[in-house]
């Protein structure tokens, strides 16, 4: 295991602690995130509610933990479904060249010319309040980046003497892919994915903030901010906490990606 730069170590620590919070929080809170006691609306943090209660008298701790877990998991799935096909298509384009490459580049360019948000908005209108359009839209808009990077790097690698030699010697595509191409691509793609994870967390919370979120009573960091915004004066902490968790998650991802991105 390579030693990590201090910044990346901090990023990893942030993500791991958020994951820990997401997994252990529900157990710590001890209640269902949907369980409400209207009489305890906006209760301040205390023995009953460690992080206070929201406007419907639900435990903020339980809700924040569920929301964090949801955000991280949805973001991870989104990134994986953008990165894996994007990388494979990029390698395919570099490998085959010709009309395959031309066609894929054309599709990628067309997707790039379409603001990603438009795609998500259209899909979210298709099934409001569902995870699927959110995930599908982000993945459909996100694969292009991996495609472009993988294609550029793979064409460089394919032109290297040892790769060319391996292909001439008759090593199968599997060998070339696994042994020669992917090891060269992975560090860069890893940075891209870490960064993409942050962007996905940000995008998911932002979209649910503008009302394309997920059905109640599901807790989501962006929609929690929207829900609690009217109570910002009476219970500023309740609005601050979900936004702070988004901030920490994104910061963690960006730090983990390190400076290689710029």
């Amino acid at each position: 295991m390579r030693t990590l730069a201090p910044g990346r170590r901090l990023g990893l620590l942030l993500i791991v602690s958020l994951l820990g919070f997401g997994l252990l929080g529900p157990w710590l809170a001890g209640t269902d995130p949907a369980h409400q006691i209207l009489a305890h609306s906006l209760a301040p943090p205390g023995a009953d509610y460690w992080l206070g209660a929201d406007h419907l008298g639900r435990s903020m701790l339980a809700r924040l933990a569920h929301a964090t877990r949801l955000s991280l998991m949805l973001a991870a799935v989104t990134v994986a479904s953008a990165a894996i096909p994007g990388t494979l298509l990029g390698i395919l384009a570099a490998w085959r060249g010709g009309w395959v490459e031309g066609g894929l580049v054309l599709v990628a360019d067309a997707v790039l010319a379409l603001p990603g948000l438009l795609l998500v908005l259209l899909l979210a209108a298709f099934a409001p309040g569902e995870f699927l359009p959110l995930y599908l839209g982000l993945a459909l808009a996100g694969w292009v980046e991996y495609f472009r990077v993988a294609r550029a790097m793979a064409s460089g690698l394919l032109a290297r003497p040892h790769v060319e030699a391996a292909r001439l010697l008759g090593f199968g595509p599997g060998y070339v892919l696994w042994r020669l191409l992917l090891p060269g691509l992975l560090p860069t793609l890893g940075v891209l994915a870490a960064f993409g994870l942050g962007s996905a967390v940000l995008a998911i919370s932002t979209l649910s903030f503008i009302g394309l979120g997920i059905h109640p009573p599901t807790a989501e960091l962006g929609s929690m901010t929207t829900e609690l915004l009217p109570y910002a004066y009476e219970a500023p902490l309740t609005v601050l906490m979900p936004a702070a968790l988004v901030f920490m998650a994104v910061l963690g991802c960006h730090l983990l990606a390190g400076r290689g991105r710029a």
């Binding site: 942050g198 920490m248 910061l251």
Partner: peptide, 11 residues
């Protein structure tokens, strides 16, 4: 700054 969601920044 880049880790702050735009809506939170605006708020």
């Amino acid at each position: 700054l880049r880790a702050v969601p735009a809506y939170a920044l605006g708020l």
